[in-house]
């Protein structure tokens, strides 16, 4: 069952609360394939929460969420996973392992035995190395992630999303801890994924980068997306 309707992400009147008052009140969002969307807003506005709702990690308190044309409340979570990559603020890489290991990890759901035995096929390894090269880490594939710089780690996370063949990439503040030039290079790389038809939804703090690179910019304020 593969849902391939018009919009990869569609939210209508979504509300959410953690049990301490409404955080999201009335969020509407419609995203097209291959679109790059930036979400801005002050700290604590609920941006991370919104990404978690889109990825199915949190259930909205009210409203309707549809991903790849499949309503979330309809047991679609299983189908849409694998097609979404979620890069949290702290990147969630396995630091004690190499960049290559972290990229290959994205194929563990399809090839669990190869993952558990670490006996990857030659073609998988070559593809992963190719992706790492494409993000500029050709010579760091065998380096442990804990020895990489912040920008390099971010690239590993992006490489993993590409290797996962995700259709939607959710990135939470992908460049907030980087200097401007590195940040711009990373954003440029994220945006270049559009040519592969990948949809990008990123939480951004830097106005300049957001306006320069993204197709649409939303601001989350008082629980509403504008």
């Amino acid at each position: 069952m593969k849902f391939q309707l018009q919009h990869p992400v569609f939210l209508r009147n979504v509300s959410f609360n953690y049990g301490n008052g409404l955080l999201l009140r009335d969020v509407n969002l419609l995203v097209d394939y291959g679109e790059a969307v930036a979400i801005m807003g002050r700290s604590g506005a609920g941006k991370t929460t919104l990404l978690k709702i889109i990825s199915g990690l949190l259930k909205p308190t009210g409203g309707y969420v549809e991903v790849f044309g499949c309503p979330m409340s309809f047991g679609c979570v299983k189908h849409i996973r694998r097609r979404i990559a979620y890069i949290p603020q702290n990147l969630a890489l396995i630091e004690s392992e190499t960049a290559l290991y972290n990229v290959l990890l994205a194929r563990a759901p399809n090839k669990p035995l190869r993952f558990i035995t670490s006996l990857w096929s030659r073609s998988d390894v070559e593809e992963a190395l190719g992706v790492l090269k494409a993000v500029g880490l050709g010579d760091k594939a065998k380096t442990k992630v804990e020895k990489l710089s912040g920008g390099e780690k971010q690239r590993v996370a992006i490489a993993r999303a590409i290797f996962q063949r995700a259709d939607v990439l959710l990135a939470d503040e992908p460049v907030s801890s980087l200097d401007f030039d590195t940040a711009e290079a990373i954003v440029d790389m994220l945006i270049s994924l559009k040519s592969k038809g990948i949809t990008i939804i990123a939480v951004m703090h830097d106005r300049e980068l957001a306006f320069k690179y993204f197709d649409k910019i939303y601001v989350l304020e008082n629980g509403v997306l504008k």
């Binding site: 978690k52 996973r81 979404i84 969630a92 669990p112 996962q164």
Partner: peptide
């Protein structure tokens, strides 16, 4: 880490 692995589609023993 658990969240992003889950979204990636990992479950069970892997």
């Amino acid at each position: 880490l658990y969240n992003s692995l889950k979204v990636m589609g990992l479950s069970g023993l892997p």
